[in-house]
Design a protein around this nucleic acid. Structure first.
Lengths: 144, 144
DNA sequence: TAAAACAAAATTGCACACAATGAAATTTAC
DNA sequence: GTAAATTTCATTGTGTGCAATTTTGTTTTA
């Protein structure tokens, strides 16, 4: 009776610790990101822009595994804060190009401490972290 | 210039693939859970109840890493669907006890196929899956 | 070349998550 | 014995996520 459906036990799920862990880590980021007036999703969006300077919504969505339903309002907020600009591509008016502003670039310097601060809260060895990283990207690449 | 802050590159983050992977897998569940009229969060809640038959909100929140702000409306929905009942504990009126109904128990039989169906979409070897599972619980336990 | 097909964002609606606050019951400290 | 602190759940407000649809623009095709 107890184990009629072992696959339905929370402790036998791979997805559940993934889901819980993801949320717990994002929560850990909050105090550091609050200081920058960024949410986690806004943070990873800025991360893409710090690397690429400008990108369109479609490509950004592919980078972050997010769609326009999430990105459109988020990018408007980042625009309001003055960190990005949004404009249509001249050669194809359907495409919206998001660009980093000078203010957005400055934010990067302030954000530089976040990864260090976070690193002390991940208690895995460098090797374990690398293994985890590899397995996650394997799942992300092959299954999703 | 390019690598002024390597810690701020998306590709150097451990959190990002965790976050993306979690959402992608939950998305994979959707078609199967739709057939049961369950969301993913409702599904893991029912999973706890299928194991324990009854539990109070506080303990449920500890199991799932969720708080009452998420659970209260979710449990009301599960009650509306007829799968759980909600009542206060007589010995301590602050405590709300959630119990599985007969209908909720029946749902378990229909849900039994979900883990099988999902397993074909995780492309990790059993050993890799076990490693991932262990590392995730290590993070969840020690860091969060 | 006009209509149909396609593509990219935006919009809408629903369901979380979660911080912050509130309300009610219980426990603790004096 | 009661005021203060604590505990438990509910409520509120903000910000995602995402499916489905709409709008606008571009490309293809008959």
């Amino acid at each position: 009776m107890e184990d009629k459906y072992p696959g339905l036990k929370l402790g036998n799920q791979l997805c559940f610790p993934l889901y819980a862990c993801s949320r717990e880590i994002v929560k850990k980021y909050k105090p550091f990101l609050d200081e920058l007036d960024l949410t986690y999703t806004q943070y990873i969006t800025m991360m893409v822009l710090w690397e690429k300077e400008q990108i369109n919504v479609k490509e950004l969505g592919e980078c972050l595994y997010l769609d326009s339903g999430t990105l459109t309002p988020l990018l408007k907020k980042l625009e309001t804060k003055g960190w990005v600009t949004r404009r249509r591509a001249r050669e194809d008016e359907r495409v919206l190009i998001v660009s980093l502003t000078e203010e957005g670039r400055k934010l990067r310097d302030r954000a530089a401490v976040v990864p260090e601060k976070m690193s002390c809260c991940v208690k895995l060895s460098p090797e374990e972290a690398r293994t985890l990283y590899t397995l996650l990207y394997k799942m992300l690449g092959e299954c999703c």
